[in-house]
Design a protein around this nucleic acid. Structure first.
Lengths: 233, 233
DNA sequence: ATTATAATTTAGGCGCACCTAATCAGCGAG
DNA sequence: CTCGCTGATTAGGTGCGCCTAAATTATAAT
């Protein structure tokens, strides 16, 4: 039985669209034209045109004026890009000394150019990591994506101990600022105070060094954490 | 004094053309339309069109019906691509276990996607190598290219000792075959016999292991060597 | 139910990079 | 000196991926 998976080689742009649509779907069912346009910084009519091409290639289902949803083959392509992007970011950080705030654009360009073989060689050299430097899960070569249940720091009740597990890789300034607070993926802290009315959150890093930091509500909303259960004493 | 070097960001295609033209110029003064078309596997009219664009951007001087020559800025861009390509090949071979016969296409795609920063980080990780795995000299970041005077194996007189210093990276089959003979860049051997009328060359590798090999004239013409002066005894 | 507004699509255009077919320039041979 | 060949260019066409402006559809508000 031949796997006839005709793959007419996606263009760079198509790859970008599929990845963006995949990420938008994760937020809310259908991906809408405007949302895609915003994500890719193009005008809405450009999106309409591209959706036409992509749906003609069977990569997505397009309900005009409604939105768009990836087909199995579209999702596979998107996950392939996601794997590439995240392996690349991890490789650049661990093997070439990039900072976590500067890898994103580099990976964004390289993900269209690397071969599957190179990606797998990098993954191997890294020991097949499961998360990238920002805590995003890396899809398996076969396209399985392990999604972890996390809670935003802004929602962690005072008194709990938590570990930073994930944040967006998009904003370098934000990443630099977060790092300057002593926060990195894997760092644990205790939530001392969570002020009401979208107020700031005060945490104490479980050092070294042990430091207190105050974090605005909006920023805390983008810091995804795992709550560490208290020791049964 | 501001270096106003307006760089309108070359397209991938432009980069390929400039690199090809640079290499053709090295062979014989002017690069001709057909030669460029052959090198890039496109039709001659496509080349005419691109030459028009490139000469409008001041990257080359085009004498219609005659040929084409890079300007200083075109040469700079070409050398930049050459550096990228060769650093990439070296990196892939030394850090990611690629074979010397399979790196070329990977580098060919990546050279358009990597940033200057990434190239320099790779170069640094490699200890700023001066030659790539096929012995091609790597241009400096500033664009200086050190050309070494070499002689084809087919022209090395019998009795001389020589070292393989360079060969083309284009043909994977050839590279695999050459490797199977025990030849690599840096390997030394003695020329035992050079048969006339474009006949084969017989060499003895200065082991280990010490082996004799017979190499056809045409292949020998593509193996560039340095002749090692005899010890003054 | 109608109307205003916001989202989306169609219409029409542009530049790049390719193609084939047809034309034109340069050059050596007779 | 002209013919004919080779090589280069122009002419004209295609698809991609973007744009703006105009039309269309969906939806929320009156």
């Amino acid at each position: 039985m031949v796997r006839a998976e005709r793959r007419p080689d996606l263009t760079r742009s198509s790859e970008d669209y599929l990845k963006a649509i995949f990420e938008l779907e994760a937020l809310g069912g259908l991906a809408q034209t405007t949302a895609i346009a915003d994500a890719l910084a193009v005008a809405p009519p450009s999106v309409s045109g591209m959706l036409k091409r992509l749906s003609a290639s069977g990569l997505l289902a397009h309900v005009p004026y409604r939105g768009v949803q990836l087909t199995a083959s579209g999702r596979r392509a998107a996950l392939r890009m996601l794997r590439r992007h995240r392996i690349l970011e991890t490789y650049l950080v661990s093997k070439l000394g990039y900072d976590w705030d500067s890898v994103h654009p580099e990976a964004e360009r390289l993900e269209h150019a690397v071969s599957d073989e190179l990606v797998e060689r990098m993954a191997m050299a890294l020991g097949n990591p499961r998360f990238d430097p920002h805590g995003a899960p890396i899809p398996s070569p076969g396209g399985e994506l392990e999604e972890v249940e996390l809670v935003a720091l802004s929602e962690v009740p005072a008194g709990e101990t938590a570990e930073l597990r994930r944040l967006s890789d998009r904003d370098p300034e934000l990443l630099r600022y977060v790092a300057s607070l002593g926060l990195r993926v894997g760092v644990r802290f205790e939530v001392l105070l969570r002020q009401p009315f979208r107020g700031p959150v005060t945490i104490r890093l479980l050092g070294p060094p042990i430091k207190e930091q105050v974090i605005g509500h909006e920023l805390a909303g983008g810091l995804w954490c795992e709550i560490i259960p208290k020791e049964a004493g």
